[in-house]
């Protein structure tokens, strides 16, 4: 919490929370996905959002940088109201890094170009500066040797680490992670989580939608459990994951930790969830 990144942002937001969500509603047509979310993320805090699929956790994350426009409610990042129609959303997004489940690297660019192009086009950094920052961040995620490779030649885990480096190269105050390891083969999950763990220890403000309970338990300062578009409970990881107060949380965790013991209806729901992920 005492690194340069954290102190930089401290200047712009002396006291208030880094992310603040107030009375957030979001509907897709008739389907109300978020039904009144209030949430604050303090500077340097790591918040993991957990919950069953369809609970609205990804939508909540995507509302923070306005990839989804809320139906009602307000979102503030670093004191700026993101949901204000008069705010320059591109300028706000520069301060918010986002990592996607499907990596979304630019396949027509090399790894280095993936990192330099946004810096040059968006931040107007010169060539040398962008290249320097790119090299620095590739080293940070341990992929310096892949600088000239194309994304298609990398493993999923490597692609995701490049995606993290690409976001970091923009010097964000906040990082959003939308199920960053859900599309990865199990043996590749560890490398990505290791990078995220280092980032958390460096004091980055992070909001992470995840199914990785051991990561949440170990790294998160706070765990938020969502179900049916509302926050059911939140608190320290040991409490929410270790000793949940609500029946719904207990039910979710028992299914997640031991899928084999799930009852039949839940099992089918879980299966359809997997199918949904596959074709995303």
């Amino acid at each position: 919490m005492s690194t340069s990144t954290a102190t930089d942002t401290a200047a712009s937001t002396p006291e208030g929370p880094e992310i603040e969500v107030r009375g957030l509603y979001k509907s897709f047509g008739d389907n109300e996905v978020l039904r009144g979310i209030d949430l604050e993320v303090r500077q340097g805090e790591v918040v993991c959002v957990i919950g069953p699929s369809g609970s609205g956790k990804s939508t909540l994350l995507r509302c923070v940088n306005l990839l989804e426009e809320p139906t009602k409610g307000q979102v503030f990042v670093g004191g700026t109201e993101v949901t204000d129609p008069d705010v320059d959303i591109d300028a706000v997004r520069r301060r918010i890094g986002m990592v996607f489940q499907q990596f979304n690297l630019f396949p027509h660019l090399t790894v280095t170009e993936n990192l330099t192009l946004p810096q040059r086009r968006v931040l107007r950094r010169d060539k040398a500066e962008a290249a320097r920052v790119a090299a620095e961040n590739l080293e940070r995620v341990g992929l310096s040797e892949k600088a000239t490779a194309y994304p298609s030649s990398l493993s999923g885990g490597q692609q995701q680490r490049v995606a993290i480096a690409r976001a970091l190269a923009m010097g964000p105050e906040v990082m959003l992670f939308d199920e960053p390891t859900s599309a990865l083969d199990p043996e590749l999950v560890g490398d990505v989580l290791a990078v995220m763990r280092v980032l958390a220890n460096e004091g980055m403000t992070m909001m992470v939608v995840t199914h990785e309970m051991s990561f949440a338990r170990e790294v998160a300062d706070r765990v938020v459990f969502m179900d049916g578009g509302v926050i059911v409970e939140q608190g320290a990881p040991a409490q929410v994951i270790g000793d949940p107060r609500h029946e719904r949380t207990r039910h979710f965790l028992s299914r997640l930790l031991d899928p084999a013991r799930a009852e039949v209806p839940e099992e089918t729901e879980e299966t359809s969830d997997q199918v949904g992920k596959a074709d995303q």
Partner: peptide, 12 residues
């Protein structure tokens, strides 16, 4: 996702 990734990086 390509457009989303670009927008999330601050591209117009």
């Amino acid at each position: 996702g390509q457009m989303e990734a670009a927008r999330s990086l601050g591209f117009s």
